[in-house]
Design a protein around this nucleic acid. Sequence first.
RNA 1: GCGCUCGUAGCUCAAUGGAUAGAGUACUGGCCUCCGAAGCCAGGGGUUGUGGGUUCGAUCCCCGCCGAGCGCGCCA
Length: 588
Amino acid sequence: MTASRTPTSPVFDARRHLTGLLRAALTSVAPGQGLTEIILERPKQASHGDFASNLAMQLARELKTNPRQIAERLVRELPPSPYVTKAEIAGAGFINFTLTPAARSAVVGAVLAAGKNFGHGPAKNGRAARRLQVEFVSANPTGPLHVGHGRGAAYGASLASLLAFAGFEVTREYYVNDAGRQMDILAVSAWLRYLELFGEPVPFPPNAYQGGYVIEMAEQIKQAHGDRYVHPAEAVLACLPQTEDDELRLDGLILAGKDLLGEDWAYVHSHVLNEQLTDCRADLEEFGVHFDVWFSERSLYDTGMVARAVAALEKSGHIYTQDGAKWFQSTAFGDEKDRVVQRDNGIYTYFASDIAYHLNKFERGFDKVIDVWGADHHGYIPRVKGALAASGADADRLEVTLVQFVSLFRDGHKVSMSTRSGEYVTLRQLRAEVGNDACRFFYMLRKCDQALDFDLDLSKSQSNDNPVYYVQYAHARICSVLAQWDGDAAALAAVDLVPLQHEREYALCARLAEFPELIQQAARDYAPHALAFYLKDLAGDFHSWYNAERVLVDDQAMREARLALALATRQVLQNGLSLLGVSQPVSM
RNA sequence: GCGCUCGUAGCUCAAUGGAUAGAGUACUGGCCUCCGAAGCCAGGGGUUGUGGGUUCGAUCCCCGCCGAGCGCGCCA
């Protein structure tokens, strides 16, 4: 944001340089193909040089010529360059470039010059979306966050940081479902537990919130307000409908609470809401997950936005009435069936407020709105996009990223989890067991559309196997060697890098140079896991080099060049780890 | 039944349509009088579920089949 104009590579941009050379050769060899995109990739094998281009293969069809012949002509027409030692043809027609030692190690100077801004945007597609919103977690404040929410939190937070670093303006938002039936159920659950404390036991419904935290909230209410909210159990039971249906009985209990408590119901309701929200916020803060906006669902009702959104759809002919309810015609937008927005009892559905919410997001001027949802909500996408389209909005501005489930395994068995029954492992428990760093990093070790099996016993008993320690260890090692050197680190930014000529030094430099590209790529794909994998690779390249070559050698030029490389590596480790919310310990 | 997501080494997972599909783990064998061994080096390990199609080229894109998870409520 603030440093988006900071040049990330003031010394030498190999990719840009080679693109220019190829562009010149292309103009000479095939003047009619000037629009062909120049693609440069980093070969997986060191023997294939520093960069490879498939330009000849791209041209093969248009020119109706063997790719290798085209490649030969392109290489012949390449302008001379002081940074390229050779450009050779390989395989089906790749052109492989090998850079000079100075060009290879130049990235070290670039890293040290840019510091914590190395890799920072601006995004390449600068004309496209600029202002982004990432909405994530948004769990109902009806109980502690569980490990599934934790994955959404880690993913959303890392994604938001990644996008911001890539050059976008990012707003992090949590949608608070503070209206609706689930909150009423929580309120009545706490109230029933409260009545139990005063010897007025009403049979606790199986579909009410079972967790121990509900009893704790009941005790808090008792401490603060004594018996103010007590009513005889008989009075409560008298209000209940004669039915075997658990859901109807629960609704009856909610109505009983509202009737008997009158205006005090609002106190119980807001007490349990604030209690859960405060707990949730603290939990996330400890996890390093911050939000810019906590958006209240109820505010959409208070300001009349829900009613306006539905009325607008009605006016434009996308809503019809059937069986006393109002239906949105989402089948017209590819959904499986039409959806109710207002029930026959006049109450709006969650879908109705969600339409208003997303319209509100668009009104706030975001170029792109990214929703991070649990995978079980995938069926919800067509109706929301349909409602946006029906409202005249550009539904493509909404992007929904689905995060697959987390399954916990304990003693080799899958732990059954149910929010209602209170049988689940909380994010707090997980963090306490494996630590915040390992937790954040572990969540990032697979792409979000891959289901995650989390073995609690393994992460507890063998936490040293966690890759996060491998990356952090590289950082600590660098800190250690710099401390032993005890020189002026700032001066290393200007040292001569020519002594860096070993294969492992080239490999490490190439990895550092890859960082800015990786940031843009991962941001484009909404794939923060790519950053975690990159950091593992970077740490691996460092460990290999560090084991093979000694840093603190007698020769001053060599010593300083290697210290500069180590320092640059530490910088990129810091930049990457901080994006993932993982600490960078000086020692371990 | 319909829809969404997925299927890659024994296990856990990577791989902008590119070259011999890569890591970790497990297993085998080496490396500390020397900057941190939470480390490094070497080795065996694969018909990318399956059958077609598009392409100069497919783990990736399209279709069928098999298998797994999830969804299909006037809940959120």
